[in-house]
Design a binder for these strands. Structure first.
Length: 886
DNA sequence: GCCCTCACG
DNA sequence: ACGTACGTGAGGGCG
């Protein structure tokens, strides 16, 4: 073993590029949770890892190219011009290479106007050969010119971890020339990859032959007359200048003005903290698990830090302060009915855990919960608020909600399990609910109460820690206002709406159930007769066999698993297959029966006769709400049969009415605003029928009377398509026309509405650059697949980039309206109550005599919720039931 | 637990 | 060439 120092010099750009292409097949698989591709980083990492193990360097440096213009470009315009454009999936990884190197504890360096190999060449040449052995690593064989007695050059062969070693001897042996003569060889033969021209018709073989005889480019030209007459000789003479230029281009600079010295390059091993952080950010879990770190072990083996808390059976005022986290543990998702079984609260000094009987008997607790000056941080404000209110505990001043904040930061980080959300934000001290309470049939509270207490205490602590962290992140994203002024207040408004519930006439539903049961039996019989046998009409599989095998109708569409029997397919069979009419009838009624009549009857609260849906505030990726158990946002309306379901939704007081207000064309208005398209805006400002207006433009008509209903129908479909991120295929499917015709509609549309076209191009570009899109109120949606090479994934992401700001801004607007509406109703002491939200409409119940006032208020608040460059418009209706509020 | 179908905006 | 319109939730069948 020599006691010489060892310096490893790595050509960063070249190796990273090699790594990228070596793992190109893994490109789409290797992404971190934010959608960043990681294949080059991964390959680079592995290369460094194996080099460190093998070489055990005392000094190391990774050199990078700086910018595009090097001194080589200064005298040769086309230098490297032939290179294909660097893929975006590669460039996006480069900045993170620095993080990786800092984790490894390896210096990196770049120098304006010089390439990595110049930095490497300079260092390799300048170190004292008596003191340093040097290993150069690159994917570029040019660097073999640097080989000498104390310098070995390793070039990647396959992938990045397999290297071929070049020494003076091995080069001599393999090529018959010295390392320095490689420059001469490039001068003659050129290098296609760097666009170094070389001399016409001279390749590597010829070049070597010439060099063996004459030693160098200079030597050849000194003896040029000695060459026998040939085409080659002619080329050499004609391209003398090119030959010397090429040689110059291929020569690595060994005297670059670098500002690092060997002493700066001392290598003393990785910075574990940084390396772990890097692994986590990149989701390099296999590397993480190889590391023996306490933090990682804690995460992996569930060996968490000790946590201290006090279990209390008596509650005193001293247990509360004005800035605390609170966690209410329920079993089950439905907080309207789930029992509370443990409560924890605390600050950074002390955490308290108690049982519900103790807590709800405590006036001190209620006083604190209600106290305006006492700020509370929670996980899921609405859930907490409702659960406590059911126990007559009023909550005020929730100032942070981990779940809501996490969802705003990244709509995907929205797990109902606190531990999962915490993990997303690098906090690992909470176990999953599943690991504590079990799942499925085995769900339950652990025998040992301390297990629950411990779990809840950890949640309280996590809320404290994450509140600060997530608040900072919101700040960075400029989402503080979205959080404080929109989502957090809305959660309380929604809580009250849920608690209020909506009255349902169960008698009416039961009547309908009887009626439909008879009809279903009837239709069933008819289908069986036509089919010639009985089968399960609810099974698409069995139905497919009957229609397409037994009865032999032609197959129109297939699904992954068999024949499609969806409506659009059945509708196409109508003419030739009388049976499908009955099947369609059956489907329609069976849906109403099972989902709506039976489904709704199941969830009516027996005590109040009301339905209490839950609005999910952190599910939809666009910022919309969703509604569950039951979903009150998809009650039938389009077909009369189903619409009758709405007759069962009635006011909760005698003499009251249902009042409904909906935004007219809110998404197209938002589009008008964000696209700033003159014609689209004009249509709204002038109060035109938007679909007719579009029809006039697209069909080139000048007067509204000439717009036929068919034209309007088509224009409407185009308008929808625009909002969805139109494609010729989608539009053709929707309108039942050819793709060509659909494309023509789209072209004409963009011709008439150039602002819309520009908006779409701009938003997609922005999404590709930033990786996310935003609504008018900074709601953010990441689109990791926007740069995918997979056509489907990329196209989907592009349509989403177009749609999300529109759908999401509309969601923002109605959320603002809801908060304002709630406030106004309270301020004006009206009895009217907001009951439901269905994306672009709000449903209230109100005493008959308040209706007029309510309508005025709704118009004022909803239309004035935000100021856009186009007006917002609201239509309102009222009636004895939701059905009649149309 | 996944697939298909279908209800809504 | 690729094969989809955007966003949801629920019920029934089936393995």
């Amino acid at each position: 073993m020599s006691n010489k120092n060892k310096l490893v010099l790595i050509d960063g750009n070249s190796v990273a590029y090699r790594a990228f292409f070596a793992l190109r097949s893994q490109l789409e698989r290797m992404k971190n949770k934010n959608g960043l591709h990681t294949n080059a980083l991964y390959g680079f990492h592995n290369m460094i890892d194996s080099v460190l193990t093998k070489e055990k360097p005392t000094h190391a440096l990774v050199a990078f190219d700086a910018g595009n213009t090097t001194f080589r470009h200064a005298f040769f315009d086309d230098y490297k011009a032939g290179r294909s454009k660097t893929p975006g999936e590669f460039s996006e990884q480069m900045p993170y290479l620095r993080d990786l190197l800092e984790g490894f504890g390896i210096k990196h360096y770049e120098l304006e106007n010089f390439e990595a190999d110049d930095i490497i060449g300079t260092l390799a040449t300048q170190v004292d050969p008596a003191e340093y052995d040097v290993v150069v690593i690159s994917g570029d064989r040019d660097l073999t010119q640097l080989a000498k007695e104390n310098v070995r050059v390793d070039i990647t062969v396959k992938g990045v971890s397999e290297l071929k070693e070049y020494t003076t001897e091995s080069i001599q042996e393999e090529m018959g020339i010295s390392p320095l003569q490689i420059i001469d060889m490039k001068g003659l033969a050129g290098d296609a990859s760097d666009n170094i021209p070389g001399v016409t018709k001279i390749g590597e073989k010829t070049a070597l032959k010439l060099l063996k005889e004459y030693g160098s480019v200079e030597g050849i030209y000194e003896n040029i007359d000695a060459l026998k007459k040939s085409k080659m000789k002619e080329n050499l003479i004609n391209e003398k200048e090119t030959a010397f230029l090429s040689k110059k281009l291929a020569t690595i600079n060994t005297d670059s003005p670098i500002k690092v010295g060997i002493d700066d390059l001392a290598f003393s091993g990785p910075d574990m903290e940084k390396l772990i952080a890097f692994y986590k950010e990149m989701d390099f879990n296999s590397h993480l698990s190889k590391l023996d770190t306490t933090e990682y072990d804690a995460e992996q083996n569930n060996q968490k830090e000790e946590i201290s808390y006090k279990v209390v059976t008596e509650i005193t005022e001293s247990m509360f302060s004005d800035d605390m986290a609170l966690y209410v543990e329920l079993i089950g998702d439905n907080y309207h009915i789930s029992p509370i079984f443990c409560i924890g609260w605390g600050n950074d000094e002390q955490i308290y855990i108690s049982e519900p009987e103790v807590v709800f008997a405590s006036e001190e607790f209620k006083k604190w919960a209600k106290k305006l000056d006492a700020k509370k941080q929670v996980f899921d404000a609405k859930r907490t608020y409702v659960a406590l209110k059911r126990q007559q505990v009023e909550m005020n001043s929730i100032n942070f909600d981990i779940l809501l904040a996490s969802y705003l930061l990244n709509t995907k980080d929205n797990s109902k399990d606190l531990s999962e959300v915490a993990t997303e934000h690098d906090y690992y001290e909470v176990s999953s609910d599943e690991s504590v309470y079990g799942k499925g049939a085995k769900i339950g509270i652990p025998e040992d109460k301390t297990v629950t207490y411990d779990h809840v205490a950890r949640k309280v602590k996590a809320i404290r820690i994450l509140s600060k962290q997530l608040n900072d992140n919101l700040e960075k994203n400029e989402q503080t206002e979205l959080f404080n002024e929109m989502e957090l207040p809305l959660s309380i408004v929604l809580a009250e709406m849920e608690l209020t519930g909506v009255k349902v006439n169960d008698k009416r539903l039961m009547e309908m159930k009887e009626e439909f049961a008879v009809r279903l039996k009837d239709i069933e019989q008819r289908v069986y007769e036509l089919a010639g046998e009985e089968f399960n009409l609810n099974s698409p599989k069995q139905l497919g066999v009957i229609l397409f095998e037994k009865m032999g109708y032609p197959v129109i569409k297939k699904t992954k698993t068999g024949y499609s029997t969806a409506v659009d397919v059945l509708e196409q069979m109508r003419e030739q297959a009388p049976i499908v009419e009955h099947i369609l009838d059956y489907r329609q009624i069976a849906k109403i029966q099972s989902t709506y009549i039976e489904g709704l009857l199941k969830v009516i609260d027996k005590n109040t006769g009301k339905i209490h849906t839950r609005y999910m505030q952190t599910i939809a990726q666009t910022g919309r709400l969703s509604s569950v158990e039951p979903n009150l946002q998809n009650i039938p309306i389009r077909l009369e049969e189903g619409r009758k379901i709405r007759q069962a939704f009635v006011p909760s007081h005698e003499g009251w009415k249902i009042f409904a207000s909906d935004y007219s064309q809110i998404e197209l208005r938002v589009l008008g605003h964000v696209s700033n398209d003159p014609l689209l805006k004009e249509a709204f400002i002038e109060g035109q029928d938007i679909h007719s207006s579009t029809a006039m433009r697209v069909f080139g008509i000048t007067s509204p009377e000439e717009v036929s209903s068919e034209m309007r129908r088509r224009a409407k479909a185009v308008n929808f398509g625009i909002v969805y991120g139109i494609s010729d295929y989608g539009l053709s499917q929707n309108l039942g026309i050819s793709r060509k015709e659909a494309q023509k509609f789209i072209d004409t549309y963009f011709d008439k509405y150039p602002g819309v076209k520009t908006y779409m191009e701009d938003i997609v570009r922005e999404a590709k650059d930033k990786g996310f899109v935003e609504t008018l109120f900074q709601r953010r949606r990441y689109l990791p697949e926007i740069n995918s090479r997979n056509f489907n994934l990329r196209s989907f992401a592009e349509r989403t980039a177009i749609n999300t700001p529109i759908q999401g801004s509309a969601a923002d607007i109605i959320k603002i309206a809801m908060i304002k509406m709630d406030k106004k109703l309270k301020e004006s002491n009206m009895k009217a109550t907001m009951l439901l939200q269905v994306h672009d409409e709000l449903i209230f119940e109100a005493p008959e005599e308040e209706l007029e006032q309510l309508e005025a208020l709704v118009i004022q608040v909803m239309e004035g919720a935000v100021e856009l460059s186009v007006p917002l418009k609201v239509d309102s209706n009222s009636g004895k039931s939701w059905y009649e509020a149309k």
